[in-house]
Computed example of a mutant assay.
Amino acid sequence: MRCRNRRASVCEPCSRLHAGDTFHLVRAGLSGGKGVPDAVCECPRLFVTLTAPSFGPVHRVLDGEHCHPRRDDPLCEHGRRLGCGLVHTDDDPLVGLPICPDCYDYVGHVLWHAHAGRLWDRFTTAVRRYLASAGGIARSGLGGHLVVSFAKVAEFQRRAAIHFHAVVRLDGPDGPGSSAPAWATEDLLLDGVEHAAASSFVTMPDSDAYGTERVGWGGQFDARPIRSFPDGDVPPDAAVAGYVAKYVTKGAAETAAGLDYRVTSLEGIRAAIVNDHVRALMGTCWRLGGLAELEHLRLRTWAHSLGHRGHILSKSRRYSTTYAVLRADRAEHRRTDTGPVDDPNTVTESTWRYVGSRHTLGAAQLAAGIAEDLAIGREFAREAMADWGPEA
């Protein structure tokens, strides 16, 4: 049976199937199929990237240029240099780490992750309000003219901060099979997402643990139209679907996203095989999770994902099909695919019986070796206790 784990580091076969399902789910919302009308490819569509704000300077890759060149070589209040004259490569372990860990805003980083889901909700609401205002209609009546559909994936940057890649689409009032009004153009949608990214924010509860009271998106924003075929810098729908599917299967170790399993204590955080930056973020989650005013954020429960508790991929109801439908179709195909039934030599066996449980030959040899090592260890322990005498 499938474990249905999306991470390739946990189960590669299941992650491969999950990536394929994600590709078809996103692609169906761009070009049709899987129950979505083919006319959806004529709807205005954008590929939007939203990032987290800066929480402090980190080492970065700049295509052969120096990381943080500083002519006067200043020092921070902790006595560390604020500049970095190195030229980093993609495989450099320093990339993504803070220039000065003591100056880095770990509290702000964790709280932004904890509010990223609400911030995305504010973003989509702001887009709808902008479109309603541009069309001269009430926000409550927007659904009678058009529907904003989306699918987004969360990706961790090298600095261990979440950013979102999203497909935003304008449909008619009856879903992807209908057309939006003539005034709802691709350019208007682009203006709407730009306005929403600049204006949406979330207010956090008051606490002595941090100084800021609201969080918003970072300055790195990108929005591009999507075409059915390659057109210069404009990505085709297949490339967008493949890009999204690639990132949903990456494990925590590949993306500096914390751990693939939950931690239950500070000792577990200290023992985790992560870099100091990720360990500091997990420790901050654990510390803030003990505050009464932040209890609703469940930071200790989600310390392994650095405070982010949202799904890796989410979509609006009308965007396209669902994972459940795709899995059901695959299961039905396997049940009904009986092979070359027209061949008279084909024998179909539909009755199964339990034969037994045992190791394969290779696994049996490995198990025997482990059992022998355990037996030798127990014998050594008995001999050691006998040498120590009753007082031991």
Results as ranks from 00 to 15, higher is better:
Pro98Thr: 00
Asp90Arg: 10
Gly96Pro: 05
Cys84Asn: 07
Gly96Lys: 00
Arg70Cys: 12
Arg71Ile: 13
Leu97Asp: 00
Arg80Lys: 12
Arg80Asn: 11
Gly85Val: 00
Pro74Leu: 04
Arg60Trp: 00
Pro74Arg: 02
Leu94Cys: 14
Leu94Ile: 08
Cys84Ala: 12
Leu82Lys: 11
Pro53Cys: 05
Glu65Gly: 06
Val87Gln: 13
Val58Gly: 01
Leu94Gln: 14
Gly79Thr: 07
Gly64Ile: 10
Glu42Leu: 15
Cys43Thr: 08
Phe47Leu: 05
Val87His: 09
Asp73Phe: 00
Gly56Lys: 01
His88Asn: 08
Val87Gly: 08
Thr49Tyr: 09
Val87Pro: 00
Leu50Gly: 10
Leu97Phe: 01
Gly64Phe: 12
Pro57Ile: 06
Ala39Leu: 08
Gly64Arg: 12
Gly56Tyr: 03
Phe47Pro: 14
Thr49Asn: 10
Leu50Asn: 03
Ser54Gly: 13
Ala39Asn: 01
Thr49Cys: 10
Arg45Cys: 14
Cys100Phe: 03
Asp63Met: 08
Gly56His: 03
Glu77Lys: 05
Pro101His: 05
His78Met: 11
Val48Asn: 06
Asp92Ser: 11
Gly56Cys: 04
Pro74Thr: 08
Leu97Ile: 05
Ala39Thr: 13
His68Lys: 09
Ala39Glu: 12
Leu86Ala: 15
Cys76Asp: 07
Leu50Cys: 14
Cys84Asp: 08
Cys76Pro: 02
Gly56Ile: 02
Arg81Asp: 04
Thr89His: 14
Asp73Leu: 06
Val95Gln: 04
Leu46Ala: 04
Arg71Ala: 13
Pro69His: 03
Arg70Glu: 12
Asp63Asn: 12
Leu94Thr: 09
Asp73Thr: 09
Glu42Thr: 12
Leu46Gly: 11
Arg70Gln: 13
Asp92Trp: 04
Cys100Asn: 06
Thr51Ile: 12
Gly83Gln: 01
His66Arg: 14
Asp90Thr: 07
His59Cys: 15
Arg71Gly: 04
Gly79Asn: 10
Arg70Ala: 10
Asp102Asn: 14
Leu46Glu: 12
Leu62Tyr: 05
Leu50Phe: 11
Phe47Arg: 11
Ser54Lys: 06
Leu46Ser: 09
